[in-house]
Computed example of a mutant assay.
Amino acid sequence: MSTCQPPVERHASWTELFFDLVVVAGVLQLSHLLHGGPSAADLGLYVLLYLAFWISWVCFTVYGNVEGGRDWTPGLLPAMLGLAVMVAAVPGIRADHARAFALAYIFLRWLSGRLWRPGRVVVDWPLAQLGAGTVPWIVSLWADTPTRYGLWALGLALDLLIMLTTSGSRVLRLAQERMDRLIRKRGTAERVPVVEAAYADVPHLVERLGLFVIIVLGEGVIQITSVAGEAVWHAALVRAAAGGFALLIGLWSMSLLHGYGGVPKDGPGVLPVRVMMALHAATTCALAVLAAGLGLGLAHPYGHTPEGARRLLCGSLVGYFGVGVLAAAVAGASWRRTLRWALPCLGLTLLLAGWSGHFGVAWLIWGLTAAVAWQLLCASGVPARPARRRGA
């Protein structure tokens, strides 16, 4: 059994940045599901589609990360096409485009598994070898709504469970045992792949995940500028837009300057790869929902804050702070320090969720900005540690 070492001091390549263009389109298209005062069902569907899109993107991102400088363009282009089909299917997801979305997802999961060389086991990303979560998606091709959505949710839940609980070393051992049985059956080791343990290049992966966060935060900027470009510039709109930019700056600072892989982190230790990936999915989903909430709120800058905007903004920020608490626990932060920032942040956000219907959206946005600023202030004294290569 051989071990493959990733190259050192890598940065995102032009190919990877080109691939990320689909993320820009995807986040923008998905945000339309939350326009117009979304219901709980709309939010649930959004989270479902977002996670499917995120997992598809990460499967190819991890491949590019592990393979290093090797040319992966032949697999990249059909992957971009598949992601583009998923994005284009979103407007008609409740009608005849749902099967196209599912087919594109199944294709992407199959393609991402086919790209790996035989015998190569990605210790940090078990989903490269395990595709049980795709089975419910295949079954959903013959199902109708809402059963279809339930099968999608089941498949994604299986993938997340595999990602968090499956031991990479166990997958490696099972792969070696499978090859040994094949050798004994054939009586020769010829044409039998050699099992290789492949590990993520963690610093490069942290950079890639951080770029994804920047794209999602950019959706917030787009929402603010799009609404402002079509509205009359009165004082209420200016205050709300300024607060929106301040809120995005605070989230950028907490997620990237004081975070780890785009995950807000209060603590001296780094995060294991599988935990970082799961928390990254939750973080970016919360930020994308917040971006949609900014657009909805700024569209109604006068009078009381719309209920839909209040739920999106406050709910997404509660989720964001929750991710920060989990990351702090994994990173080894003291509970006293964590509670010192988490209780005021969560308390203020929940208070605003309950009372912001009595005042304007600008006050709500600036109140949420204050909550993020407090988290940032408490985390600013935590020294950063260099990323480790292995985190399985």
Score class of each variant (00 low, 15 high):
373 A>S: 10
140 S>F: 12
306 P>L: 02
285 C>E: 01
197 A>K: 09
81 L>R: 01
15 T>I: 11
275 V>C: 03
62 V>T: 03
337 R>V: 07
54 W>V: 00
310 R>I: 02
156 L>C: 05
239 R>F: 14
183 I>E: 12
353 A>K: 01
298 L>P: 06
286 A>E: 02
65 N>Q: 08
268 P>L: 08
14 W>K: 08
340 R>A: 15
77 L>C: 00
186 R>C: 07
39 S>C: 07
149 Y>C: 01
372 V>S: 04
274 R>A: 09
201 D>E: 15
205 L>K: 00
198 A>R: 13
40 A>Y: 08
319 G>T: 07
175 A>H: 10
291 A>F: 05
290 L>R: 03
212 F>G: 08
361 V>H: 09
283 T>C: 08
53 F>A: 11
62 V>N: 00
205 L>D: 03
13 S>E: 02
316 S>I: 01
121 V>S: 02
192 V>N: 07
173 R>P: 03
355 W>V: 14
1 M>Q: 02
42 D>T: 07
264 P>N: 06
310 R>W: 01
285 C>L: 13
342 A>K: 05
329 A>M: 13
383 P>N: 09
46 Y>K: 00
245 F>I: 15
111 L>W: 11
276 M>S: 13
176 Q>K: 14
86 M>R: 05
257 L>H: 13
248 L>F: 15
110 W>N: 12
10 R>E: 12
128 A>C: 10
371 A>I: 09
54 W>G: 00
296 L>R: 11
48 L>N: 11
230 E>H: 15
113 G>M: 13
43 L>H: 04
118 P>R: 01
253 S>H: 15
380 S>R: 15
374 W>P: 08
252 W>Y: 15
332 G>D: 07
192 V>Q: 11
372 V>E: 03
298 L>C: 11
256 L>S: 11
89 A>Y: 00
295 G>H: 10
109 R>M: 09
209 L>Y: 14
390 R>S: 12
328 A>F: 06
86 M>I: 05
315 G>A: 13
89 A>C: 01
274 R>I: 05
58 V>K: 01
126 P>T: 00
8 V>Y: 04
388 R>K: 14
357 G>Y: 08
161 L>S: 07
217 L>Q: 08
149 Y>F: 14
374 W>Y: 15
296 L>D: 15
238 V>P: 00
225 T>K: 05
35 H>F: 02
369 T>G: 13
48 L>I: 10
130 L>K: 08
325 V>C: 10
170 R>F: 02
340 R>V: 11
51 L>M: 06
10 R>N: 04
78 P>S: 06
314 C>S: 12
77 L>P: 05
200 A>L: 14
84 A>V: 04
127 L>S: 01
78 P>N: 02
328 A>R: 07
169 S>N: 09
14 W>V: 13
206 V>H: 09
383 P>L: 05
173 R>T: 14
168 G>W: 02
8 V>R: 13
230 E>R: 15
45 L>T: 09
91 P>R: 06
341 W>K: 02
299 A>K: 06
365 I>L: 06
127 L>Q: 04
271 L>T: 08
135 V>N: 03
